[in-house]
Nucleic acid binder design. Structure first.
Length: 284
DNA sequence: ATCCAGGAGGGCC
DNA sequence: GGCCCTCATGGA
């Protein structure tokens, strides 16, 4: 990947295996808007525009330093996805189809607190409404980055929020779960310092929060702790897995996890995202 | 109107 | 342990 300063941002030349739409709309993140090759995201307290023009990608506004220190990692740009895709495509024919369809997905390295709260909100919910709730929380409690654009609230901003105002964000029964997450963090659960611990330790800590179970903790591990061997199983992935890995027969979550581990190993998380995006909305 | 959406807690057995 | 019901909200 080559890049250089361009106007008030950065221009990237020769990057492969990166599609903005696929990366943002594959369900791993919620704070973005745009279409085709022109989006913006809100992350790390900033609004960042991303645009593809032929095989060049522009990120702005940002300095070279900020690009190198924040966004390369956030978009996972230095990882060799060609190699990942090649290995996974050999494992399963339908997975190969999925990779052919959305091989531009990169798994983001997102902020831990925001990812945790976001995926607590995501349970028994649909993506458009999840986005609305998170947007409203940001508007209500987060810093205004620029006119009418708000960062996701940090811990103390949510900690100081009244239950009534939180409820007004329409998170419904998940309010108690968000409150418990805030309470656990207040009482010593340190999301940042967990990053160097073993995956099982992180998972155990996350699941000590009421409202964080197997699937939500898996999403946080995959999207915020870089644990790419994790294969989160939601309703869609369960249906898809049963169909393509178990001959259309019932399989419980434990068996699907085993299958993913045995077949995809350290790359299971990538496989999950390709399948989720490829199959989401399809009928069975 | 009833069902469903990137689930998980709680009660019951 | 597994099974079943429930949770708040809004769109289909």
């Amino acid at each position: 990947m080559r890049y250089k300063k361009y106007k008030n941002g950065v221009k990237v030349f020769d990057i492969n295996d990166f599609d903005i739409k696929q990366t943002l709309e594959c369900g791993q993140c919620f704070r973005f808007l745009g279409e085709k090759n022109n989006y913006f995201i809100i992350a790390h307290g900033k609004k960042l525009n991303i645009k593809r023009d032929d095989n060049k990608i522009f990120f702005w506004p940002c300095s070279i330093d900020e690009f190198e220190n924040t966004w390369i990692n956030y978009f996972d740009l230095e990882r060799n996805y060609a190699e990942i895709k090649k290995i996974l495509a050999q494992k399963n024919k339908i997975l190969a189809e999925a990779i052919n369809f959305c091989g531009g997905i990169r798994i983001l390295n997102q902020e831990k607190f925001e990812t945790l709260i976001s995926f607590i909100i995501s349970q028994n919910n649909n993506i458009p409404r999840i986005k609305k709730i998170i947007e409203k929380m940001s508007r209500e409690f987060g810093n205004e980055i620029e006119k009418n654009y708000f960062a996701f609230p940090n811990f103390s901003q949510l900690e100081n929020a009244s239950e009534e105002k939180l409820m007004n964000c329409k998170m419904g029964f998940r309010l108690n779960y968000v409150l418990d997450a805030l309470d656990k963090i207040k009482n010593g659960l340190d999301l940042e310092s967990l990053k160097n611990r073993e995956t099982e330790i992180i998972k155990k800590n996350l699941m000590s929060i009421k409202g964080v179970g197997d699937k939500v903790s898996d999403c946080v591990l995959l999207f915020a702790y870089g644990r790419r061997e994790i294969f989160p199983i939601d309703t869609w992935i369960k249906k898809v897995s049963q169909k393509i890995f178990f001959g259309d027969k019932d399989a419980d979550i434990k068996r699907i996890h085993e299958f993913a581990k045995n077949n995809f190993g350290d790359l299971a998380g990538y496989a999950q995202q390709y399948l989720f995006y490829y199959f989401r909305g399809k009928k069975f």
